[in-house]
Design a protein around this nucleic acid. Structure first.
Lengths: 243, 243
DNA sequence: TGTGTTATATCTTATATAAGTTATATGTTA
DNA sequence: TAACATATAACTTATATAAGATATAACACA
């Protein structure tokens, strides 16, 4: 019986993918870094360049790595201009793009409620940070976010630290905690605005809002953030594509 | 000056992609068909198998072709079980999947309004079919769809023909008109239910609904369908993923 | 019913060339 | 000499070909 026919068979390139991912988890290469060249990795893992190439191809297709001809292959980072808007799908109906302005409302440490605990693989009641913020487009508040993250992972996070940081939230997570978001799942509903959301978004109570629930994952498909965004979608839409 | 340095340079595998796509447009291979083997295509296009392979890899990644080891490579079809739900992103919050029941409300032939005409690359006033239907989950109406398609492309479509067909709408388009949907863009908003939607979905006027506008494309990125779905999302969500 | 054959895609390695990027050496000129 | 431009080398990914081994599926046939 060959290795290939065993039930746990994985093609070589897939094993290389796992090894690269493990180096990402371990922090051997951090977001923005160049990883070793294909030749170097081939020598290190004792496989051919083509096999390394196929592994990197797939990781690049997943937006985990970024290839740049002539320069090298880099670990994707939310600090790069190109991917700072990768997870923001709200945009103006006329297509003109504008980066929203963020206003931090509060940062608090509490115990995880049932839902976000379950989705984050935590015990109910585990310690989390809850971040509330308001995103504005054209100086008009549009999105009210409530973000839950495990305190164990984001140790030492506090409000002054967040206020001091200029870039996006995921860029902040990367630079201060080494946590890179690589994938997210969203569940979207239409809901009526509650008291808090209505107030913050300058709408009537009961106004129709998009409720966008997200779980975001870091390397190795580990869930590390849950959030609920409430979004007023007049003249704006949530844009997505499928194939 | 080599071919490769000319401004219109395209790698060989990309040219092969285009040639394969042209055969799909021409109807040489129809949805569900097997395309020739990699070896045969390599001989036909006078390139190596590896180059054909790379072209097919990318088309498979776009869900235009489907590879099956040992069997061959097939043209993706909405009639296949696996992809009958490929473009339906509404699902139950508890994850249990259920295929909705469709009730055809009306089929009429009219002139295209400005918006759908523009998105379908038609003149305003061009002849289109408008299909209205209601999708029910668990015997409860959930989605009210209004679908616009160019009459020039779907020549001969009528209501009895649609009622006679058992499968999904895109499966119907494939089998009767040879039009395969391969990609779609959606713009999503939260809106209050109007009179018609409220009536059909058994909701109060003004109830919050998901408004899902879609443009769907066939081979060669040609837009061939515009639709607006209004969806009542209690206990259900629009699910999407990003990376 | 089972067994071998054949055809397919898949995986892996190897080699060669093209093309983009950067650093360094080399020259040229003020 | 100093500043600048240019050529070259070295490194990277990208493209293309070839060849062989393996996994999967369908079919013919004993």
């Amino acid at each position: 019986m060959t290795n290939a026919s065993s039930p746990s068979f994985r093609p070589l390139y897939d094993q290389i993918k796992i090894l690269i991912t493990q180096s990402l988890i371990a922090g051997e290469w951090r977001p923005g870094d160049a990883i070793p060249s294909e030749i170097d990795l081939a020598n290190r893992f004792k496989v051919s360049q083509g096999t390394v190439r196929k592994a990197i191809d797939e990781l690049a297709a997943e937006n985990i790595l970024i290839r740049r001809q002539g320069k090298g292959t880099f670990v994707a980072s939310h600090s790069q201009e190109r991917s700072s808007t990768r997870f923001l799908r709200i945009s103006r109906d006329d297509g003109l793009s504008e980066y929203p302005e963020s206003r931090l409302l509060s940062v608090s440490r509490t115990r995880a409620p049932e839902e976000s605990a379950r989705l984050l693989d935590l015990r109910t009641g585990a310690s989390i940070f809850v971040i509330k913020r308001l995103l504005s487009f054209e100086h008009s508040p549009r999105i009210f976010d409530e973000i839950h993250i495990p305190a164990a992972i984001f140790k030492g996070l506090d409000e002054p630290m967040m206020r001091a940081y200029a870039g996006s939230l995921y860029s902040f997570f990367e630079t201060h905690f080494g946590i890179a978001m690589i994938r997210a799942e969203e569940h979207i509903k239409a809901v009526g605005a509650g008291e808090e959301a209505a107030l913050l978004l300058n709408q009537e109570r009961g106004a129709s809002l998009l409720q966008i629930d997200r779980v975001a994952f870091t390397y190795g498909d580990r869930p590390v953030e849950w959030r609920r965004g409430l979004c007023f979608t007049d003249r704006y839409s949530y844009v997505t594509e499928m194939s």
